[in-house]
């Protein structure tokens, strides 16, 4: 099943930021979101991940198929790399963490507490989590922040392998990963027109 977004509008803090979004994402394809800071890329990704409801429009093929990676990696400083990754593997159904450790070159760091890792190493661990989820659609918010060139290449390889295995990826990034399968989607054209402030519908 494809991820399909039809006439979607998303809001942040009750203020509409993007509207009229239409795209579809088939297995084996990647879609890269572009747009200036504050244009609503993160809000769109959180909506697709199911963390917030869309303002209007429809979203199909999401839900339990999404693996979401945000700005924060969700790591516990007092747990080792292996424990951190092993926890997520168990939550998502008990996959082997060895391929994920190998793909992101974390093998030598396995027994290190996550709190002692550098920012780039933490990011790599956060991205390795995607591989143990076994979910087909990766939703990534600025995945390459604090990664060096070699790590970006590791990440691009992981995405490529994921796409080759029939997965899909929706990501907001400004770095060209060199993915042949990637299309660019510029959200600037979909910015919401200013309109009367909506009421806070949180409790309705």
């Amino acid at each position: 099943m494809d991820l399909r977004v039809t006439d979607l509008a998303v809001a942040r803090g009750g203020v509409p930021v993007l509207e009229g979004l239409n795209f579809a994402l088939q297995g084996g394809r990647a879609l890269v979101l572009r747009g200036p800071n504050g244009s609503g890329k993160t809000t769109l990704l959180r909506t697709v991940a199911g963390l917030q409801p869309p303002l209007s429009g429809s979203l199909t093929g999401a839900g339990e198929r999404i693996a979401y990676a945000a700005h924060a990696d969700g790591l516990k400083a007092m747990q080792t790399v292996r424990e951190n990754l092993g926890f997520w593997a168990r939550v998502f159904g008990g996959r082997d963490i060895a391929p994920a450790l190998a793909a992101f070159d974390l093998g030598a760091l396995q027994e290190r507490p996550a709190g002692t890792l550098s920012a780039g190493q933490k990011r790599r661990l956060g991205l390795a989590r995607l591989m143990v989820t076994g979910r087909p659609v990766w939703v990534l918010d600025e995945p390459t922040v604090s990664l060096d060139a070699a790590s970006v290449a590791l990440f691009a390889d992981a995405v490529r392998a994921h796409l080759a295995a029939g997965g899909a990826a929706l990501m907001a990034t400004h770095i060209d990963l060199g993915l042949d399968e990637a299309e660019i989607f510029d959200v600037t054209n979909c910015r919401a027109r200013p309109r009367a402030a909506l009421q806070d519908e949180a409790f309705l």
């Binding site: 963390l51 693996a67 979401y68 945000a70 700005h71 924060a72 969700g74 516990k76 998502f92 989590r129």
Partner: peptide
Amino acid sequence: DWEDGSLDLLATAPL
């Protein structure tokens, strides 16, 4: 869990 982002990730997990 909210501060380090794992609450968001748990919310998208199959729990």
